[in-house]
Nucleic acid binder design. Structure first.
Length: 248
DNA sequence: TTCCTGAGAC
DNA sequence: GTCTCGGGAA
Protein backbone atom coordinates (compact mmCIF):
# COMPACT_ATOMS: atom_id res chain seq x y z
CA UNK A 1 0.00 0.00 0.00
CA UNK A 2 1.98 3.00 -1.05
CA UNK A 3 -0.55 5.58 0.04
CA UNK A 4 -2.18 7.51 -2.73
CA UNK A 5 -0.76 6.59 -6.11
CA UNK A 6 0.61 9.70 -7.75
CA UNK A 7 -1.01 10.62 -11.03
CA UNK A 8 1.54 10.03 -13.79
CA UNK A 9 1.53 13.50 -15.26
CA UNK A 10 3.97 12.55 -17.95
CA UNK A 11 1.29 10.54 -19.70
CA UNK A 12 -1.25 13.33 -19.85
CA UNK A 13 0.05 15.37 -22.81
CA UNK A 14 0.73 12.30 -24.95
CA UNK A 15 -2.70 10.81 -24.25
CA UNK A 16 -4.43 14.11 -24.93
CA UNK A 17 -2.64 14.57 -28.24
CA UNK A 18 -3.38 11.00 -29.30
CA UNK A 19 -7.07 11.46 -28.50
CA UNK A 20 -7.13 14.79 -30.32
CA UNK A 21 -6.02 13.22 -33.60
CA UNK A 22 -9.47 11.77 -34.02
CA UNK A 23 -11.56 14.42 -32.26
CA UNK A 24 -10.11 17.80 -33.11
CA UNK A 25 -12.45 20.67 -33.85
CA UNK A 26 -11.78 22.83 -36.87
CA UNK A 27 -12.10 26.61 -36.73
CA UNK A 28 -10.98 29.41 -39.07
CA UNK A 29 -8.46 30.68 -36.52
CA UNK A 30 -6.80 27.30 -36.33
CA UNK A 31 -5.79 27.33 -39.98
CA UNK A 32 -2.03 27.38 -40.56
CA UNK A 33 -0.27 30.49 -41.78
CA UNK A 34 -2.36 33.11 -39.98
CA UNK A 35 -0.62 36.38 -39.13
CA UNK A 36 -0.09 37.30 -35.48
CA UNK A 37 -2.74 39.99 -35.93
CA UNK A 38 -5.21 37.42 -37.24
CA UNK A 39 -4.53 35.30 -34.16
CA UNK A 40 -4.95 38.28 -31.84
CA UNK A 41 -8.21 39.21 -33.55
CA UNK A 42 -9.56 35.71 -32.95
CA UNK A 43 -8.49 35.60 -29.30
CA UNK A 44 -10.17 38.91 -28.51
CA UNK A 45 -13.28 37.88 -30.39
CA UNK A 46 -13.45 34.60 -28.47
CA UNK A 47 -13.43 36.09 -24.99
CA UNK A 48 -16.55 34.89 -23.19
CA UNK A 49 -17.98 33.81 -26.51
CA UNK A 50 -18.77 30.40 -27.92
CA UNK A 51 -16.45 29.25 -30.68
CA UNK A 52 -19.33 28.51 -33.04
CA UNK A 53 -20.64 32.07 -32.67
CA UNK A 54 -17.19 33.55 -33.20
CA UNK A 55 -16.68 31.39 -36.30
CA UNK A 56 -19.64 33.11 -37.93
CA UNK A 57 -18.15 36.60 -37.88
CA UNK A 58 -14.41 35.95 -37.77
CA UNK A 59 -13.91 35.47 -41.54
CA UNK A 60 -15.79 38.72 -42.21
CA UNK A 61 -13.78 40.59 -39.59
CA UNK A 62 -10.43 39.33 -40.84
CA UNK A 63 -11.24 39.99 -44.48
CA UNK A 64 -12.27 43.57 -43.74
CA UNK A 65 -9.55 44.30 -41.18
CA UNK A 66 -6.47 42.26 -42.12
CA UNK A 67 -4.19 44.40 -39.96
CA UNK A 68 -4.21 46.79 -37.02
CA UNK A 69 -4.23 49.88 -39.24
CA UNK A 70 -7.38 48.78 -41.04
CA UNK A 71 -9.10 47.98 -37.77
CA UNK A 72 -8.06 51.23 -36.10
CA UNK A 73 -9.47 53.26 -38.99
CA UNK A 74 -12.76 51.37 -39.26
CA UNK A 75 -15.70 53.74 -39.81
CA UNK A 76 -17.85 54.30 -36.70
CA UNK A 77 -20.61 51.75 -36.45
CA UNK A 78 -19.24 49.37 -39.06
CA UNK A 79 -17.65 47.09 -36.49
CA UNK A 80 -20.83 47.00 -34.41
CA UNK A 81 -22.83 45.87 -37.44
CA UNK A 82 -20.43 43.01 -38.16
CA UNK A 83 -20.44 41.96 -34.52
CA UNK A 84 -24.19 42.17 -34.05
CA UNK A 85 -25.62 38.83 -33.09
CA UNK A 86 -22.43 37.59 -31.48
CA UNK A 87 -23.04 39.36 -28.22
CA UNK A 88 -20.90 41.90 -26.42
CA UNK A 89 -21.09 44.04 -29.56
CA UNK A 90 -20.60 47.46 -28.03
CA UNK A 91 -17.85 46.68 -25.58
CA UNK A 92 -16.04 44.40 -27.97
CA UNK A 93 -16.19 46.86 -30.87
CA UNK A 94 -14.83 49.59 -28.65
CA UNK A 95 -12.19 47.30 -27.22
CA UNK A 96 -11.02 46.13 -30.63
CA UNK A 97 -10.61 49.70 -31.83
CA UNK A 98 -8.73 50.75 -28.70
CA UNK A 99 -6.48 47.74 -29.02
CA UNK A 100 -5.74 48.41 -32.69
CA UNK A 101 -5.15 52.09 -32.05
CA UNK A 102 -2.69 51.28 -29.30
CA UNK A 103 -0.78 48.88 -31.55
CA UNK A 104 -0.58 51.48 -34.31
CA UNK A 105 0.56 54.22 -31.95
CA UNK A 106 2.97 52.19 -29.82
CA UNK A 107 4.11 49.15 -31.78
CA UNK A 108 4.08 50.17 -35.41
CA UNK A 109 0.88 48.20 -35.92
CA UNK A 110 2.66 44.94 -35.10
CA UNK A 111 1.74 42.38 -32.44
CA UNK A 112 4.48 42.23 -29.77
CA UNK A 113 6.12 38.89 -29.09
CA UNK A 114 6.59 39.61 -25.41
CA UNK A 115 4.34 38.90 -22.47
CA UNK A 116 5.00 42.21 -20.73
CA UNK A 117 4.42 44.19 -23.91
CA UNK A 118 1.23 42.32 -24.70
CA UNK A 119 -0.13 42.95 -21.21
CA UNK A 120 0.23 46.69 -21.78
CA UNK A 121 -2.13 46.54 -24.75
CA UNK A 122 -5.67 47.57 -23.78
CA UNK A 123 -8.08 44.65 -23.39
CA UNK A 124 -5.32 42.06 -23.47
CA UNK A 125 -5.08 40.26 -20.14
CA UNK A 126 -3.13 37.25 -18.85
CA UNK A 127 -5.13 34.72 -20.85
CA UNK A 128 -5.22 36.51 -24.19
CA UNK A 129 -1.55 37.52 -23.97
CA UNK A 130 -0.44 33.91 -23.45
CA UNK A 131 -2.85 32.65 -26.11
CA UNK A 132 -1.27 35.00 -28.63
CA UNK A 133 2.23 33.87 -27.64
CA UNK A 134 1.19 30.22 -28.04
CA UNK A 135 -0.85 30.32 -31.22
CA UNK A 136 0.88 33.17 -33.07
CA UNK A 137 4.48 32.57 -32.03
CA UNK A 138 4.62 28.98 -30.82
CA UNK A 139 5.78 29.75 -27.30
CA UNK A 140 5.48 26.71 -24.98
CA UNK A 141 3.03 28.19 -22.47
CA UNK A 142 -0.06 26.76 -20.83
CA UNK A 143 -3.41 28.54 -21.01
CA UNK A 144 -5.35 28.83 -17.77
CA UNK A 145 -9.04 29.61 -17.59
CA UNK A 146 -11.96 28.19 -15.63
CA UNK A 147 -11.93 25.11 -17.86
CA UNK A 148 -8.29 24.45 -17.06
CA UNK A 149 -9.03 24.64 -13.36
CA UNK A 150 -11.96 22.25 -13.65
CA UNK A 151 -9.95 19.68 -15.61
CA UNK A 152 -6.95 19.92 -13.26
CA UNK A 153 -9.13 19.52 -10.18
CA UNK A 154 -10.83 16.45 -11.58
CA UNK A 155 -7.67 14.97 -13.08
CA UNK A 156 -5.23 15.57 -10.24
CA UNK A 157 -7.66 15.64 -7.34
CA UNK A 158 -6.08 16.59 -4.05
CA UNK A 159 -2.66 17.00 -5.62
CA UNK A 160 -3.88 19.84 -7.81
CA UNK A 161 -2.78 23.34 -6.79
CA UNK A 162 -4.90 24.66 -3.93
CA UNK A 163 -4.77 28.37 -4.67
CA UNK A 164 -7.98 30.24 -5.27
CA UNK A 165 -7.12 32.30 -8.31
CA UNK A 166 -6.20 31.18 -11.78
CA UNK A 167 -2.59 32.19 -11.16
CA UNK A 168 -2.09 29.21 -8.88
CA UNK A 169 -2.49 26.87 -11.85
CA UNK A 170 -0.17 28.61 -14.33
CA UNK A 171 2.94 26.69 -13.34
CA UNK A 172 1.27 23.31 -13.63
CA UNK A 173 -0.29 24.30 -16.95
CA UNK A 174 3.08 25.40 -18.31
CA UNK A 175 4.81 22.25 -17.11
CA UNK A 176 2.47 20.02 -19.11
CA UNK A 177 3.07 21.68 -22.48
CA UNK A 178 5.22 19.60 -24.84
CA UNK A 179 7.90 22.09 -25.98
CA UNK A 180 7.67 20.92 -29.58
CA UNK A 181 3.88 21.05 -29.94
CA UNK A 182 2.49 23.97 -27.89
CA UNK A 183 -0.27 24.85 -30.37
CA UNK A 184 -1.58 21.34 -30.83
CA UNK A 185 -1.42 20.57 -27.12
CA UNK A 186 -3.37 23.66 -26.08
CA UNK A 187 -5.99 23.06 -28.75
CA UNK A 188 -6.21 19.45 -27.65
CA UNK A 189 -6.66 20.52 -24.04
CA UNK A 190 -9.40 23.00 -24.95
CA UNK A 191 -11.25 20.48 -27.10
CA UNK A 192 -10.93 17.87 -24.37
CA UNK A 193 -12.36 20.29 -21.81
CA UNK A 194 -15.21 21.23 -24.13
CA UNK A 195 -16.11 17.77 -25.46
CA UNK A 196 -15.13 15.26 -22.75
CA UNK A 197 -14.34 16.85 -19.39
CA UNK A 198 -17.28 19.21 -19.70
CA UNK A 199 -18.66 21.37 -16.86
CA UNK A 200 -21.81 19.28 -16.68
CA UNK A 201 -22.22 15.63 -17.68
CA UNK A 202 -18.55 14.83 -18.30
CA UNK A 203 -18.04 11.91 -20.68
CA UNK A 204 -16.03 9.77 -18.30
CA UNK A 205 -17.07 6.63 -20.15
CA UNK A 206 -15.01 7.58 -23.17
CA UNK A 207 -12.36 9.69 -21.46
CA UNK A 208 -8.84 9.19 -22.86
CA UNK A 209 -7.43 10.04 -19.42
CA UNK A 210 -9.67 7.67 -17.50
CA UNK A 211 -6.78 5.51 -16.36
CA UNK A 212 -4.84 8.42 -14.92
CA UNK A 213 -7.75 10.48 -13.57
CA UNK A 214 -7.82 10.96 -9.81
CA UNK A 215 -11.57 11.35 -9.74
CA UNK A 216 -12.24 8.14 -11.60
CA UNK A 217 -9.59 6.03 -9.91
CA UNK A 218 -10.98 7.21 -6.58
CA UNK A 219 -13.80 4.74 -7.16
CA UNK A 220 -13.85 1.95 -4.58
CA UNK A 221 -12.63 -1.33 -5.94
CA UNK A 222 -10.64 0.32 -8.66
CA UNK A 223 -13.16 -0.65 -11.28
CA UNK A 224 -14.25 2.13 -13.58
CA UNK A 225 -17.93 1.77 -12.88
CA UNK A 226 -20.18 3.64 -15.20
CA UNK A 227 -21.79 5.89 -12.65
CA UNK A 228 -21.14 9.54 -13.28
CA UNK A 229 -18.39 9.66 -10.76
CA UNK A 230 -16.78 12.61 -12.45
CA UNK A 231 -20.04 14.48 -12.34
CA UNK A 232 -19.57 15.63 -8.78
CA UNK A 233 -19.44 19.38 -8.51
CA UNK A 234 -16.83 19.28 -5.80
CA UNK A 235 -13.34 17.90 -5.91
CA UNK A 236 -12.97 14.36 -4.52
CA UNK A 237 -12.21 15.66 -1.03
CA UNK A 238 -9.34 17.65 0.20
CA UNK A 239 -6.09 15.80 0.09
CA UNK A 240 -3.44 17.81 1.90
CA UNK A 241 -1.77 20.47 -0.19
CA UNK A 242 1.49 18.56 -0.41
CA UNK A 243 3.07 21.13 -2.72
CA UNK A 244 2.38 18.69 -5.57
CA UNK A 245 5.61 19.50 -7.29
CA UNK A 246 4.14 22.73 -8.51
CA UNK A 247 6.77 25.24 -9.46
CA UNK A 248 6.49 28.44 -11.45
C1' DT B 1 -31.03 27.80 -15.80
C1' DT B 2 -25.66 27.73 -16.78
C1' DC B 3 -21.98 28.40 -19.82
C1' DC B 4 -19.07 30.40 -23.50
C1' DT B 5 -10.97 30.45 -25.06
C1' DG B 6 -11.86 37.47 -19.86
C1' DA B 7 -10.76 41.89 -18.71
C1' DG B 8 -11.90 46.58 -17.08
C1' DA B 9 -14.18 49.37 -13.69
C1' DC B 10 -15.21 49.79 -9.09
C1' DG C 1 -12.42 41.25 -3.66
C1' DT C 2 -17.34 42.00 -6.76
C1' DC C 3 -19.94 43.58 -10.83
C1' DT C 4 -20.70 44.08 -15.64
C1' DC C 5 -20.95 43.21 -20.47
C1' DG C 6 -24.44 39.88 -24.05
C1' DG C 7 -26.69 37.00 -27.32
C1' DG C 8 -27.00 32.17 -28.34
C1' DA C 9 -26.91 27.33 -27.28
C1' DA C 10 -27.48 23.24 -24.31
Amino acid sequence: MSGTPPVPRGEVPARLLAWWEGHRRHFPWREPGLSPFAVLLAEVLLKRTTATAAARVYPVLLARYPNAHALASAPPGELEVILSGVGLQRQRARGLKEMASYLCANAGGEVPRDLGELLRVPHIGPYTARAVLVFAFGEPLGLVDSNTVRVFQRLFGGTAPQGRGLRAYQGLADSLVPPDRPREYNWAFMDFAALVCRPGAPQCGTCPLGHVCATRTAAPGGSPDQRGLCGGDRPPHGGRDQESGYRD
